[in-house]
Design a protein around this nucleic acid. Sequence first.
DNA 1: TCGGATTACGTGCACCGTAATGATC
DNA 2: GATCATTACGGTGCACGTAATCCGA
Lengths: 287, 287
Amino acid sequence: MIEIYLLEQLVSFAKNKTLLRAAEELHISQPALSRSMKKIEEEFGVQLFNRENSKISLNETGKLATEYARRVLEADREMLERVIAFDRSKRTLCVGSCAPFPTGELIPYIQEYYIDMAITSEIADDDRLISGLKNGIYQLAILHEQPDEKELFCQRYLEERIYLSVPKEHPFAKKKSVSFDDMKELRMLVARNIGFWMNVCKNNLPTDNLLIQNSLEALYELIYASSLPCFNSDRMIERGSDMPERVNIPITDEDAHTIYYIACLSSERKKYSSVFNVARSTVIRGE
Amino acid sequence: MIEIYLLEQLVSFAKNKTLLRAAEELHISQPALSRSMKKIEEEFGVQLFNRENSKISLNETGKLATEYARRVLEADREMLERVIAFDRSKRTLCVGSCAPFPTGELIPYIQEYYIDMAITSEIADDDRLISGLKNGIYQLAILHEQPDEKELFCQRYLEERIYLSVPKEHPFAKKKSVSFDDMKELRMLVARNIGFWMNVCKNNLPTDNLLIQNSLEALYELIYASSLPCFNSDRMIERGSDMPERVNIPITDEDAHTIYYIACLSSERKKYSSVFNVARSTVIRGE
DNA sequence: TCGGATTACGTGCACCGTAATGATC
DNA sequence: GATCATTACGGTGCACGTAATCCGA
């Protein structure tokens, strides 16, 4: 069997055409490379080079050998890459969610239970979450609808209701409640990354009235600096992110309320039982 | 990059399950293998083994790594095989022929001109010879018909005429000539490996009358031991393989006579010019 | 006590670099 | 003289083997 380092040197020579330049690329000396080329020729047991005193070049067989060498190196490289990726995936727990609040709520608990794992979370559509669970992109998903798929285990999690948030002096500030219909004329500040709530907004309000902010910093700055209305939610308020000089008015539409569900592959239910236990106890505490 | 010898050791361990047995297979010591497994783990940068004091085994990642390692080894092995085969093909001159006589005539000359090459020859149909020239299986072919292919160079070679050979006391022995039609009732001894001549026989004589012999030894033994008729040819007679106590009677049919042609790829005409020169001079001498 | 893995230690080979030589332009 | 390959020589790292140790059935 011919060792990888020899193949690397062969390929580098094929690329650089002279031993000197190849040796520079490989950070070895010219004589070392010269010897290696002798050695690889000996190991193949066939002539790979034309040598004319102070000139060495690949012959037809050498070119073929280089082609195959490239393949071997590629296989070696791919092996390294895939094995490392697999290892990483084993120690990474990826949580997908349809909205930001539940991950913020759940992840600290998960982190606590799986201290040796990297936890990643991202927001995606329910469709993508479900297919992601199936193909292993996500290990856990937080949905706002119960999927009726047999291969998924699903457990009810927290509820969330969104509110209209306006400054105290805003015409709406005195209202006990509002509907999306009432809000049709309002220009609303909203963050971009709010998952399915964005669909709720777009389905119930004129799209042009949504002042979508890419970053939370920008959003909060605008909320403080302007009197423009924005959204809030019971869960965010509980969490203490209430905004001073603003009042939160309940939105009466059914769309303004949701129930979250935690899901995983049925086959992995046991593996994540601690997550489901924590979630269940959170729900009970919240009631 | 991970070296081949480490991959071989990993694969051997995966196969043998214990370091001891794998070390035996690899003809190295147990500690050496133990260290190698540490090293390969370090080079991957991930855990590949479960170690429980006096027990070591592959984990999931290790099994995956082994799978990929097998592929790399296979690629390495295939490289070696293909390169050696290509080299061999470069120093092998393969001559295909439609009949045995012309190769026997030509090969000594070829051998003389290409002393550093291995000359192989085999007998095949004209179709196979032509496709073999095109795909590199044959470098030279001896045909009994001129192909009209542009990519082939073709030169007329020797002629051959076959004779009926019978013992002196045979009823046919006195004839000045015969036709295949005259021979319809004769049971003929023939060798199997006579190329296109076998087609000539089958097209002109009842197949059941052909006593086909696999080996030349068997054929000659029967010729000497029996009074059965057989074939001979002017070229074979010239060469001195005339048979005592037998007479050779010319066969009048056109099918009993052929002209051989030597062909090669037009692109390689120069490469084999010495062969064609020898062949031309042989033809002229023969006239 | 034996099968099996690891640790400790010494050794030799194989690969490397430096320097010198050879060859071609 | 510049470029480029090879030979010669001395050094070193690393993979190896031997021996000892540890651990569990």
